[in-house]
């Protein structure tokens, strides 16, 4: 199968090589390898419990790496302590948003800005993308609507000026207009050269935005296909995701 590379931006920004990881003694990921290039959206598809969220938490250093190598822009990040990983330039938008409850919108963004010492102009850029947040700056994060919370979670990650962005089910439970808003931001980030790793349950949403799709099954690599190929032939999706 020909590997689908973007001709100009052919740099592997985020790379996982034979990664083994899991919770305590329960191993979840087995020799998983992935590559996300700058300016590319790679979507991770798989059944529940296949290891999608585990992959993201392992990249962030929140789960111990048993073996294998994770690198960002050529630098080994797998051996760094968890709090050093985001400082290298990875923004994480976790499943269920996980905002800092009790902190205001402005303070949540402030934590994001502090991670890599980003200045006020970064905040302005981010608020440009999510004007709704500007009106809510003094409000506590947990009082926002679901869509606004997702915007805030995304904005918080963008405050890092990330080289790579991890999105775990960003459209879960959102109304269509919000999904569209989030999608547009993701596409814009791709155009800016950010490497994007996306976990998403809804296959249609994936195919409309992803460049490549990597299947994951029981913590192991499945096939990696271009989104175009999948759009043409839907059967392989059914085999891995079983809808």
């Amino acid at each position: 199968m020909p590997r689908c590379r973007r001709p100009i931006l052919g740099v592997a920004m985020l790379r996982l090589e034979a990664v083994n990881s899991g919770y305590g003694r329960a191993q979840v990921l087995r020799d998983l390898s992935l590559e996300v290039q700058a300016g590319e959206i790679l979507c991770l598809l798989g059944r529940n419990g296949a290891g999608k969220t585990t992959t993201m938490q392992t990249i962030m250093g929140l789960l111990p790496l048993m073996s294998g190598r994770i690198s960002l822009d050529g630098e080994d990040i797998g051996s760094l302590p968890a709090h050093e990983v985001p400082r290298r330039g990875i923004g994480y938008i976790p499943q269920g948003r996980r905002l800092f409850a009790g902190l205001t919108v402005a303070q949540n963004l402030e934590v994001g800005l502090m991670t890599r010492g980003s200045g006020r102009e970064v905040l302005e850029e981010v608020l440009e993308l999510f004007p709704r947040l500007r009106e809510r700056m003094g409000q506590k994060a947990q009082t926002l609507s679901g869509g606004e919370q997702q915007m805030l979670a995304t904005a918080r990650a963008l405050c890092l000026r990330p080289k790579a962005l991890l999105l775990d089910e960003p459209t879960e439970g959102l109304q269509p207009s919000m999904i569209e808003a989030i999608r547009q931001v993701i596409v814009k980030l791709r155009a800016d050269g950010v490497a994007i790793l996306l976990v998403e349950q809804r296959v249609d949403a994936v195919l409309s935005v992803a460049d490549r799709v990597a299947f994951i099954e029981n913590g192991r690599n499945g096939e990696i296909l271009s989104a175009e190929a999948l759009r043409a032939d839907h059967s392989i999706v059914d085999r891995y995701v079983g809808v």
């Binding site: 968890a82 709090h83 996980r98 934590v111 502090m114």
Partner: peptide, 24 residues
């Protein structure tokens, strides 16, 4: 203060605090 902000972020969600560069 920033120290207070860092403490409250850690209080709210330890893992996410780490995911945003806070040395928990």
């Amino acid at each position: 203060t920033r120290i207070g902000l860092v403490m409250r972020a850690t209080q709210a969600d330890r893992d996410m605090a780490q995911a945003f560069g806070i040395p928990v």
